[in-house]
Amino acid sequence: MKTIFERPDSMTEKVTHYCPGCTHGVAHRLVAEVVDELGIKDRTVGFAPVGCSVLIYEYMDTDYQQAAHGRAPACATGTKRVRPDLMVYTYQGDGDLASIGTAEIIHAANRGEKITVVFINNAIYGMTGGQMAPTTMPGQRTTTSPMGRDTGSVGFPVRVSEMLSTLATPMYVVRASLHSPYNIIQAKKAVRKAFQYQLDGTCFSFVELLSTCPTNWGITPTGSNKWLEENMLPYYPLGVFRTPEDDLK
């Protein structure tokens, strides 16, 4: 019998705690597959954020450090600078990266740290129970924006990929989405490319993955995919924002 689908070697057998329809599991899998394919499992160190994916260290079968809220890019900097031979990545949600950890992500990117950042943007705080995130859409109802996000008082959603792209330091910045099989295949390519840049010692690499949070959005999993497509895609356009090849031209 031929095996056509199996658990990546870089994942543990532990069943995840994620809600039905949540795309964290997909994103985890993409990272694990890339780690397997590049053959870097025994030299990879991941950094877990504070947020829903804090327990990623339970699911990934590689060395892992848990980081304080928003600080993963600084922690990863510490490891990568003293052990450049290691493959170092952070896995961060939008509250972690785009709110409390804004300084850390911008400066890690600007220093050109040779790390990879996987950024999960699901437009809401998951772990704490559905509060407004910096990435929450205009008018989107959350527990702390019960009337819908009022851009007049809290501003517009932060586009992190675009923001990082303003930096002069050469880097790889890409936004992909996890709302359909086609997009997941594209996302995998982006993750793989990001890790490849690190493996080659080229540059800082950043993959933003648009994700769903059916539980806190209050929408079914399939409805969530549709909501992402209709609401998030127009505001968060997919594509490659920066490549080191272009930057170094």
């Binding site: 450090q65 980081a67 304080a68 922690c75 510490g78 600078r81 003293v82 300084a103 850390e104 400066h107």
Partner: peptide
């Protein structure tokens, strides 16, 4: 290795990351 961090918050978290990698920091 010396990195001038963006803040003491970040500097101390870099120490965390480097210490985790088993080097004196």
């Amino acid at each position: 290795t010396f990195v001038q961090a963006e803040s003491e918050v970040a500097a101390s978290q870099m120490v965390y990351g480097a210490a985790g990698a088993g080097v004196r920091v």
